[in-house]
């Protein structure tokens, strides 16, 4: 049995792992089989993470965090959690390969998943012109016309990235103003390849085997027009990944895990949450990292107050070998 199991391997999970490992809590990180490293694995240049004045590639940053956690003794398992049992003093985590791990505390840092528009044809044409990852799929749209749906940071980052390949990038936003940061807005407005389509919602995605166009509804006039594009990149935000725990942990109205004040404490003793899964507002790599620190320190404090009998259950492999 472990003292700490961390579920998730984005900035929150790995930062919690660094702190927990340095506190000799011998954390086990369940990193996921294909989404380890989290959302930053799908980004290119990260310019706003402190300490990197020349920027850093998202995947490189995550590999460094992973190495830093491992350096201090965190163990990482590349599998997916299929079941969590959080009640009681001993928590149980079941993995995709059938392994069951037990721990006195859980730090839950699963981040968020891309939101879909909710159209049937969006799902049908996913991978055939509909994409949620410009860095993965942008290169297949050389000299094509594509649309990016959304008005936040990720929409503008995707649009700017796609201008490397596409001839025209339409930025489709349902309002007449962007939510994205000023730096990203300035860059996008100055880009001759990006055309802004304001007050438009995607009503249809057209195409039999591949996307051939999208139907845009004008939110002011109610008129629908077809835009000829072969690619549609959806960047309308993300929802917290709570499907494993939604009937075990209390959630907020926004769907994030409810924590006590500025702490990471959930409504279940010994279960802590960190990163985007508790954050409906900021959702930055740096805020997630900070949130991971909070969770590791909260878990450490909780463990320090447990009875010696319980703590004795959680011998580390090294201690067990030494006995």
């Amino acid at each position: 049995m472990r003292q700490v199991i961390i579920v998730g391997s984005g900035p929150a999970g790995y930062t919690a792992a660094i702190y927990a490992a340095r506190a000799n809590l011998n954390p086990l990180v369940i990193a996921s089989s294909v989404e380890f490293g989290g959302e930053l694995m799908k980004t290119t240049e990260v310019e706003n993470f402190p300490g990197f004045p020349d920027g850093v590639m998202g995947p490189d940053l995550m590999v460094k965090m992973q190495e830093q956690a491992e350096k201090f003794g965190a163990e990482i398992v590349y599998d997916d959690v299929t079941k969590l049992e959080l009640e009681g003093d001993v928590k149980r985590v079941t993995l995709g390969n059938g392994d069951v791990h037990e721990a006195l505390t859980i730090i839950y840092a699963t981040g968020s998943a891309y939101r879909k528009l909710g159209l049937d044809d969006e799902t049908r044409l996913s991978g055939y012109g509909v994409s949620w990852c410009a860095t993965c799929d942008g290169a297949f749209f050389k000299q094509k016309k594509v649309a990016v749906i959304g008005g936040g940071d990720s929409a503008l980052e995707e649009a700017t990235f796609l201008t490397r390949f596409a001839d025209i990038v339409y930025l489709v936003h349902r309002r007449n103003k962007l939510r994205a940061s000023a730096a990203l807005q300035d860059r996008a407005f100055a880009d001759p390849k990006i055309q802004f389509l304001w007050n438009k919602e995607v009503a249809h995605v057209y195409g039999d085997e591949k996307v051939t166009g999208i139907g845009l509804l004008d939110t002011e006039t109610g008129e629908e027009k077809t835009l000829d594009v072969t690619g549609m990149f959806v960047a309308i935000g993300a929802d917290p990944r709570t499907h494993l725990i939604h009937d075990q942990l209390e959630l907020t109205a926004e769907g994030t895990i409810k924590v006590d004040g500025r702490s990471s404490r959930t409504n279940v003793e010994g279960v802590f949450a960190a990163g985007d899964v508790i954050d409906p507002t900021y959702k930055q790599a740096a805020t997630a990292a900070g949130s991971g620190v909070v969770a590791a320190l909260d878990a450490e404090k909780y463990l320090a107050e447990l009875s010696p009998e319980l703590l004795a259950l959680a011998t580390t492999p090294a201690e067990a070998a030494a006995v």
Partner: peptide, 8 residues
């Protein structure tokens, strides 16, 4: 350059 490719 495809992170998910490297993962799978």
């Amino acid at each position: 350059w495809c992170g998910p490719c490297r993962a799978v």
